[in-house]
Simulated assay, not measured.
Amino acid sequence: MEAFLVSTGIVALAEIGDKTQLLAFILAAKFQRPWPIIGAILVATLANHAFAGALGSWITSLVGPETLRWVLGISFLAMAAWTLVPDKFDEEDAKLARFGVFGTTLVAFFLAEMGDKTQFATVALAAKYHFFFLVVAGTTLGMMLANVPAVILGDRIAQRLPTQLVHRIAAAIFAIMGIATLMGAGAGLGL
């Protein structure tokens, strides 16, 4: 259960102000049809995070526990630093309207999430916890917790979110996980 809760919390916090959340705002404003957008975000996130979770699970079979501990610890510290860097949104990510609302959102979200910090977090969390389904379910729920309000409430909440504070909290959680992992936390999990 820890894998699910940590994955949900970290991704929900890391997603605030992320380029995919900005994409959700733009798609909601452009199409004004929240349910197909939300459905497409869910499908794109499940596909993307399932791939990332599988990669994280596979990595654990390649390296020994001591190496994995160092790789994960350093990865979490890098994620902490990356979380503090504001995302830039590329308008090209939202210019796929020929696919309709669902298709445009699905393709744009999947592509925007490739190489994103939440995808890397999913890889690292799956490698750390060894619970593929709980991590993917948690990171997907975290994405939905951050993006569904963005789609439904749009600009009404965009200006009210203290994104800098939220990013600092997410960065602190990643840093704590990195330090704890480097210090041997999770050794009972095979790390």
Rank of each mutant, 00 (worst) to 15 (best):
V11R: 00
S57L: 14
L68G: 08
M79L: 15
G56T: 06
A12S: 03
A121H: 03
Q119V: 12
Y129Q: 02
Y129T: 03
A121K: 06
D116M: 04
F31H: 09
I38P: 02
Y129V: 04
E92Q: 13
A47Y: 10
T67D: 05
T60Y: 05
R33H: 13
L42Q: 02
F76I: 04
E91T: 11
S75N: 07
W58G: 14
L55P: 12
A81D: 09
A52S: 14
G17C: 10
T118A: 14
A126D: 08
G9Q: 11
Q21N: 10
I10T: 13
G64T: 09
L84Q: 12
F51M: 14
W35L: 15
I37A: 00
I16R: 10
A29R: 13
F109H: 08
T118L: 11
I59F: 10
P86T: 02
A112F: 05
A44V: 07
G73I: 08
V11Q: 00
G56S: 07
R98H: 14
I38M: 04
A94E: 06
F109N: 07
F102S: 06
K95F: 03
E91M: 10
E92A: 15
L23W: 08
A126H: 03
Q32C: 01
A52K: 09
L77Q: 00
A14I: 01
F76H: 01
A81C: 11
S57V: 12
M114G: 05
Q21M: 10
G9M: 13
Y129I: 03
A81W: 14
V11G: 00
P34A: 00
V107K: 04
P34M: 02
M79I: 01
P86E: 04
L13Y: 11
T118N: 12
P65Y: 10
L77K: 00
T122E: 03
F25S: 07
A52F: 10
V107H: 02
A24E: 03
L111T: 04
T122L: 06
V63Y: 13
D18E: 11
A12K: 00
V43D: 06
F109P: 01
I41M: 06
K128D: 02
H130V: 11
Y129R: 01
A112L: 08
A78H: 00
L22A: 10
P65C: 09
L55V: 15
A124Y: 13
A29W: 11
Q21S: 09
L27S: 00
H130L: 14
G53C: 04
F110M: 06
W58F: 15
S61Q: 15
F51P: 09
A112P: 05
M79D: 01
I74W: 01
F31L: 07
